[in-house]
Simulated assay, not measured.
Amino acid sequence: MLPKGSSPRTLDLFEYTLTVPSPPSDPASASARPLELAGLSDAQLAQHFGQLLEEVQRRLQEGRGKRPELETAARQASLSLKRLVPAPAKQGRSIRAGRTASLQEGQRKAVRAALLAGVAPAQVAKHFGLSLATVRKVLEEPA
């Protein structure tokens, strides 16, 4: 009879034993997730992305207390998306057109003073970020 606590068979240190792999834990399955996403088509990926954004938005708006994990993830996603999506090309004419319509009185006076001091209209336009036509209109306006 064997003494208590001893195993029926003592293993040799150099003996080969067959081991059965254990099922993957949660972190391992999380690392397998990107492989699943890589196999999706662009349309499927866009659909999942939309669903994910809707769910995050819904959870943040529910207001069940603070959600620091979701808020941090949303901020990081926002920054990543800003880097991914190219900014629209700036159109100088449309920006300047908006500026000319809303010239403030102080700007008008500064432009007029520079012109009366003898500064060339082209230099005034460049300095103030205005079109040459706008500078000329300011000059033509009654004081």
Rank of each mutant, 00 (worst) to 15 (best):
V135T: 12
D42W: 00
L130P: 02
A38Q: 12
F128M: 09
P34C: 01
R58D: 08
E105N: 11
G118D: 03
D42R: 13
T10I: 14
S94K: 12
A73W: 05
A77S: 01
L35Y: 07
Q51T: 08
P24Q: 01
S7M: 05
A46H: 05
L132Q: 09
T100H: 06
H48K: 15
S94F: 10
D42K: 10
R108H: 04
G5C: 07
S7Q: 10
R99M: 14
T100V: 07
S131D: 15
A101W: 01
T100W: 04
L115S: 03
E36A: 15
Y16K: 12
A120L: 09
Q44F: 00
G92M: 03
K90S: 07
A101R: 12
A143G: 10
A89L: 10
S7C: 06
L18F: 12
D26A: 09
L115I: 05
E71R: 13
K137L: 09
L52G: 00
P27Q: 00
A46N: 08
G50M: 00
K66H: 07
A28H: 00
S7G: 06
L53K: 10
E15G: 02
Y16T: 13
A38N: 11
L130F: 02
A113Y: 04
V56D: 01
R99I: 13
E54I: 03
R96P: 04
A87L: 03
R9H: 08
F49D: 03
S25I: 02
G39R: 15
R9C: 04
G92Y: 03
R58N: 06
L18C: 07
P142C: 05
S29Y: 08
Q76E: 12
G63K: 01
R58F: 08
G50R: 05
Q104R: 14
T10N: 08
G106S: 15
E140N: 05
A122E: 14
L40H: 05
A101L: 11
S41Y: 01
T19A: 05
L45G: 01
A89R: 11
T72R: 15
S94W: 12
S22G: 04
P88E: 13
L53C: 14
L53M: 10
S22M: 02
A30T: 05
S7K: 08
E105G: 09
P68W: 01
V20F: 05
E105D: 14
L35G: 15
F49K: 04
S94V: 15
K137A: 13
Q44L: 06
L79A: 11
P34Y: 02
P86M: 00
T10W: 09
E36M: 12
T72G: 09
K109G: 09
G39Q: 14
R33M: 15
P3Y: 07
